[in-house]
Amino acid sequence: ENMARPELIGPPEIFYNDTEARKYTQSSRIMEIQARMTERALELLNLPKGAPAFILDLGCGSGLSGEVLSEAGHTWVGLDISASMLEVAREREADADLLESDMGNGLPFRQGMFDGAISISAIQWLCNADRSDHNPRKRIMVFFNSLYKCLTRGARAVFQFYPASMEQVHLLTHCAMKTGFSGGLVVDYPNSTKAKKYFLCLFAGPPTQYELPRAKTGEESEDDDSDNHSGGEMVDDDDDDGDASDADQEGGENAAGAVSFAGKNSHRRRKKKIGVKSRQWIISKKQKLRELGKEVRPDSKYSGRKRKIRF
């Protein structure tokens, strides 16, 4: 597949210029796909039924995803980095408050404001360094940190995205986990190149209460959609067997293509032991003694090095 990834062409606020933004109101194909992905994201949010919720749309663009939220009876706030896209959203009379904002700089909200957050095809932009002073990992951490804070406890955030590589998926899940989210990756239609969709599902709250939704494979019957809460791998807080730290790294995987992980508070983290008399051990020992005010030889390339075997 040689189609260029838009993230590689330029930063989002420049790529989504007036011409590009127009496409989102004129191409019925784009609109149809966006709407379907939003419906799925909303389903994965698993909001309490019948209650109007307050939702954050991250990278709301021209407001296509927001329309689905409005139709479902929710109130939403949209945020986007591209002024052109927001202008289109305004012209289309999106029924929401809009903000021009850069997720990578942190969200400008107080604590515990939103019942949930969705994001359609936006988060992969964060993995790019568009300016020399951008550090993707740092920006992702700042973003997840601020997102965790502005969600109510027990709320979810669902990100549909197009990962460029598995490293990107790992980077995102790892950062989300470090900021306290639990959750996992749901891959719909994992066996189809065209229909395959990635959803990063995050949960802001105690991980024992979280069950990862089941991915779609295309084989389930229509009414199966309603109980997407029954399947999925669950990460258990009281996991006492030795594999706990492995699950921490890799996550479990269920048959339908969902991978789960747990937040930083869910496992008693097992630190990797440092070998006794290894260079690292010696240096840390010397540091400790230095802190106690003892006289210690300076660290050099010879510190902790094995002597040659001599006759």
Binding site: V77, P108, F109, C150
Partner: peptide, 15 residues
């Protein structure tokens, strides 16, 4: 889609 006081009530400085 103008800014309402509900939004203003959650916004804080990002500097």
């Amino acid at each position: 889609n103008e800014m309402h006081l509900l939004t203003q009530n959650m916004l804080q400085c990002i500097k």
